[in-house]
Amino acid sequence: MKLLRLFPFFLLLAGCDIIEAPYLDNPISALPADEQCVELAMQTEPFQQPIVRKVLVEEMTGHQCGNCPEIGEIIHSLKGGIFANKMVVMSIHAGALSNPKSTGDKYNTDFRTDPGRDLYNALNPFDVVPLGMVDRRDKIIGAGAYQSRIQQALDLAPEAGIRVFNCYNPDSLRLTTVIDVKYLVEGGENDQLAVYLIEDNIKDWQKDYRYADPDLQGYTHHDMLRAAINGTWGEPISTGPISPDSRFTKSYSFTLKAGWAPENCKVVAFLFDNDSKEVRQVEEAPVVN
């Protein structure tokens, strides 16, 4: 049994480093919040390898559009299913069927936004909902074509990588987002970077003609456009020619509105050709990690 006394020796072999607060190393915490976020972003690896193509699906919809939920559910199931982590969805409430009602107790919430209105007017000249767009290349009115169109878009070689890095202060509702873009191919002279804020899981009224009583209370609206962080059409990514392997870092600050659920909000950033409006790459990241 003397040998048992040797066992504590083995315990000494293994050390324990117990860390007490504060847990942050100091230098960055002294900086203003926005600069801290940029510093934090710079110190993490921005791009997961290999860089893969992702697809932006925009859905023009409205809470009084009874044909819209079917399309929305298809898109949502594709995003959570076979295209998980490969697609980003932005649901734009615009057009006459998104108008809020000023009487009664249904459809009183106004989900419209200024950038949503501008995008709708520019990209939906026929004024029809539901309307889907895949990377702004294809416009889809029916329900059947989403999977194949998304797959076609995913089959294209990636042209750039995007990383979205967010810092959020719950006291001030202040969001700082740092966007990194790395080109894999030559960039276009009209390339723009657009950054939006979307909110998921909003419960409110929605008309759905698949039901005998089409007015659904507490319907879950997914990935709804809330705001354009750097303007409806974003801003040019560069003023000069863009060669492969070029890297750009942009940062923006934005204050969330009271009533939005930060834990459900995401920042969507995408790179697109401002002439054709076609999207070259897209990424999203939650506001609260």
Binding site: F7, F10, L11, L13, A14, G15, C16, D17, I18, I19, P22, Y23, L24, D25, I28, L40, Q43
Partner: peptide, 23 residues
């Protein structure tokens, strides 16, 4: 029975203070 398992990994994080020896 009783056991102990420990790992050592350098703290190369610039932001956080991380324990290098965890048991």
């Amino acid at each position: 029975g009783g056991s102990i398992m420990s790992k050592y990994q350098q703290d190369d994080d610039l932001i956080l203070q991380l324990p290098e020896n965890v048991s």
